[in-house]
Simulated scan of single mutants.
Amino acid sequence: MEKNEIILYKLSRIEKYIFGLKEILNVEELSDYTGFKKSYIYKLVHSNLIPYSKPNNKVLFFDRKKIDDWLLSNSSRSLAEIKAQSLELSFKNKKA
């Protein structure tokens, strides 16, 4: 890797880290933060599938904490979690 490429790569990583610290993101920042294309973000907004704010019906803004919650919603449980819950429920049923 060339020196300039290394510097640009490191700057890009720093920029992404800073986006993670910002509480309010615009569409471009959200795209960098999530890796989603801007067109997909607009599609999510149009379908009301993503939490957003649009003050004065102009510019879109996103609360990073709400986005993080949204990204982690509807998570899948691991096999170990399912087994643990199953055991817990079977013990409760035996006590009752």
Rank of each mutant, 00 (worst) to 15 (best):
D68W: 06
K54Y: 02
N74D: 02
I50K: 05
V59L: 13
S73L: 05
L71V: 14
K58D: 09
R77D: 09
R64T: 00
P51H: 06
N74V: 12
L60C: 04
L71N: 14
A80Y: 13
Y52P: 02
I67P: 04
D69F: 04
P51A: 05
P55Q: 07
P51R: 07
W70L: 05
W70E: 03
I82Q: 12
E81A: 11
P51I: 05
D69K: 14
S76A: 14
D68G: 04
A80D: 14
L72R: 15
L60P: 00
L71I: 10
I82R: 09
R77I: 08
K66L: 11
N56P: 09
F62E: 02
S53D: 11
K54V: 00
S78G: 13
K65D: 04
K58G: 11
L71F: 09
S78V: 02
W70M: 06
A80S: 15
A80T: 04
L71Y: 07
S76N: 12
D63E: 10
N57V: 05
W70R: 02
N56R: 13
Y52Q: 08
E81Q: 12
K65Q: 12
S53C: 07
D69E: 14
K66V: 01
S76I: 15
S73D: 03
I50A: 06
L72K: 15
L72Y: 15
L72H: 15
A80W: 06
N56A: 15
F61C: 11
R77V: 13
S53G: 09
F62N: 03
K54L: 03
D69Y: 08
D63V: 00
N74P: 01
W70F: 03
S78Q: 02
N56V: 07
S73F: 05
S73T: 07
R64L: 02
L79G: 05
